[in-house]
Simulated assay, not measured.
Amino acid sequence: MQFPNDVQAALLFDRRVDELERIVREFMRIEGMKSGAQFNVPEAKPGVFYRLFGGDELMITFEYLDHPANMEVFRPALSSAITGILCPDIRQRLTRSRSHVLINVSHGVLGNSPELTRLMATIGRPMEGASPPQFVRRLEVATLASRIVLDHAPAQAVHWTQSDQLVPGETFEAYAAAAAPSPLHIHPFLFGDASAGKVGIRTFGARHFVGGEIRIEPSTLPWAANYETILAFLRIALVKNGYVIPDGDTFGPEDGSLSYRVTHLSAEEGDVPIFVLKPLLHKAFGFVADDYVPRERVIDDRAPPLELMPEDDEAKMDLVNEWREKRALAEGLGGRFEVRAKGDGPMPPAPPPSGPPRGAGGRPVFGRKGL
């Protein structure tokens, strides 16, 4: 599901926690101050379970379980190298855990069981909360609730299930500070040969924002640099007037410091679609791919050299229309669209101008590099 209706956080403790009622009252007070939301409490078992409803149809539950969590749940997260980087002693922390608090945030009163999902699809009705703003709202509320729990009871670790990440309790505040999608929401599973200095990334969590995961094959670039580009790709897709970079196109900042090509792969059985990002240029690390087309080979896509265009008039018009549409998308979010000519020979001359010269400005640069 692209926008999972149920967002959950599990906070693990090495002691008993007796502050749940105070935590719930504090959450309702702070969330009320932040958003004006008012909550009813239709179900409560003092010190153990509280169900809240309100604030734009949000259903929020706080549950205290006075026993360790099921360690099998953490197996995928523990298999990720990033978990060990974030918390080298995570296994010892899990072993020391003696109780946990579960926080669940969803929209609507019907829940999100597989049976309900199938029923809603059958009758042609969307699931409640199935929009980007509502999904981000659930993430924000779950984050706030987790922070309040941590203020009252220091946790060994937080399991953020949306991205299947284990985060040390004492660093959760800093890790969750950025707006979604942030490192809390996008889990970078690393793969490749670290000893040879070639590490790639396959994300978990991007599907909830753009309908697919993101992969960067192992390269000599530091994985952290590639991860920053993954977050930039997501920000471009999610800002106002934003969009997912089209298949075969590239993107990078206005200063030309880096460039990545995007390839869309259809979902294989049991998986989701994949957006492959291929690094072409990263000046900070002296990286230049063999198929990178330099900026010196930019052509005017409004008046391209005739010898670079298809001979067929219909194909030529289709290409011009494609460029026009992509230029509109890029400029719609303050960027600039470029087309570059492949090869290393002399640049062909442009046709005679048919009107006054035109320019474009902006920060990100997008475009199909090469004809």
Results as ranks from 00 to 15, higher is better:
16 R>E: 13
20 L>G: 03
24 V>N: 06
26 E>Q: 08
28 M>S: 06
32 G>Q: 04
35 S>F: 14
35 S>W: 15
43 E>P: 00
48 V>A: 10
50 Y>D: 00
50 Y>V: 07
51 R>F: 12
51 R>G: 12
58 L>K: 11
71 M>G: 08
76 P>Y: 01
77 A>W: 03
78 L>C: 02
86 L>W: 07
89 D>F: 06
90 I>W: 09
91 R>D: 08
103 I>G: 08
105 V>Q: 02
105 V>I: 13
110 L>W: 15
116 L>M: 11
139 L>Q: 08
140 E>T: 13
141 V>T: 12
147 R>Y: 01
148 I>F: 08
152 H>S: 13
155 A>E: 05
159 H>N: 12
162 Q>E: 15
172 F>M: 06
183 P>M: 02
184 L>H: 08
185 H>W: 03
185 H>G: 04
191 F>I: 04
193 D>T: 11
202 R>E: 11
204 F>Y: 14
211 G>A: 04
218 P>N: 02
245 I>D: 00
254 E>H: 15
270 G>C: 09
275 F>H: 06
277 L>Q: 06
278 K>P: 00
279 P>K: 10
292 Y>K: 02
296 E>S: 14
296 E>A: 11
300 D>H: 00
300 D>M: 06
301 D>E: 10
307 E>F: 00
321 N>E: 15
322 E>T: 11
335 G>C: 07
340 R>N: 00
345 G>C: 03
350 A>D: 13
351 P>M: 08
356 P>H: 02
356 P>F: 09
358 R>V: 12
367 G>W: 06
370 G>A: 02
